[in-house]
């Protein structure tokens, strides 16, 4: 069995991809990079509770695009151009001068908000890819003890989120069998409450377990068969950071580089 890549490397990889995407600000490139990282997730992700994070980050991304377009169309500075359709302008009090709700919607305005939305969604998806690919627990283990308090927050946050995803499915099924169809806002309340309760008790358990095993009691901490940085890890980081030089040319290669470096 190949030793998998260092967990931090995945975050560096996705972080630099996200930065590069933001730098180029090009929609086709952003979509291509998300597609390529999705392919990497498909090939490399192991069957762990958090491996579904990527799919979820895509869904969140779609919501972001939707909301961004909605608000962009309704509120905002008019951008001159060809008018598609006009919304009635809602009168606002004087002290809100400069803000307009409604008014003519131009192609330019629509496309610029859609562009923003897609860029944000792409960045979320890339971070989701890293979450799918690296174990949050291993990530915590590689943190220096100095950032202990921070590390606990990270491990709890990152281990709750993927377990959230698994729990949602379970609770949804249970609710459906109680005769409640999961549609609409009300059903979210039905799922959210048991979910938060469970996550809370789960993280309290984890915190108690870590506490009673002496975590953070001393500042010094040794490492058992430490996750060593191998040459592959360094190469991948170097490639990832190199993408800043000419993002528009290199970004797709960088996105696929984990497959080349650690097949």
């Amino acid at each position: 069995m190949h030793k998998s890549l260092h967990p931090l490397v995945w975050w560096i990889w996705s972080g630099s991809l996200a930065t590069a995407v933001a730098m180029t600000s090009s929609i086709p490139l952003a979509l291509g990079v998300v597609g390529a990282s999705g392919f990497v997730v498909k090939v490399k992700a192991e069957n762990t509770p958090w491996s579904k994070s990527f799919a979820w980050s895509l869904k969140v991304g779609l919501w972001v695009v939707g909301i961004r377009i909605m608000t962009g169309v309704l509120i905002g500075v008019p951008i001159p151009g060809r008018t598609l359709f006009s919304l009635p302008i809602i009168p606002l009090p004087d002290w809100m001068a400069g803000i307009r709700i409604g008014g003519p919607v131009t192609i330019e305005r629509l496309s610029s908000t859609a562009h923003d939305g897609i860029m944000i969604a792409a960045i979320i998806a890339l971070l989701g890819a890293a979450a799918s690919l690296s174990s949050p627990h291993r990530l915590l283990r590689s943190m220096p003890v100095m950032v202990y308090e921070f590390g606990v927050t990270i491990v709890i946050a990152t281990s709750i989120l993927p377990q959230f995803v698994a729990s949602i499915g379970r609770i949804k099924t249970a609710q459906r069998l109680r005769g409640h169809e999961s549609k609409g806002l009300l059903s979210w309340r039905r799922i959210a409450l048991p979910l938060f309760e469970e996550s809370l008790s789960r993280s309290l358990d984890l915190a108690a377990a870590m506490d009673s095993r002496g975590y953070g009691y001393t500042r010094k901490r040794s490492r058992y068969r430490k996750d060593r940085w191998t040459s592959r890890d360094y190469i991948l980081c170097a490639i990832a950071i190199a993408s800043f030089i000419r993002p528009e040319l290199l970004i797709l290669i960088v996105a696929l580089s984990p497959l080349l470096v650690a097949p």
């Binding site: 099924t173 249970a174 609710q175 309340r189 048991p194």
Partner: peptide, 9 residues
């Protein structure tokens, strides 16, 4: 279900 709490909200 195994966790009866799943039904309750």
């Amino acid at each position: 279900p195994q966790e009866p709490g799943d039904l309750l909200y």
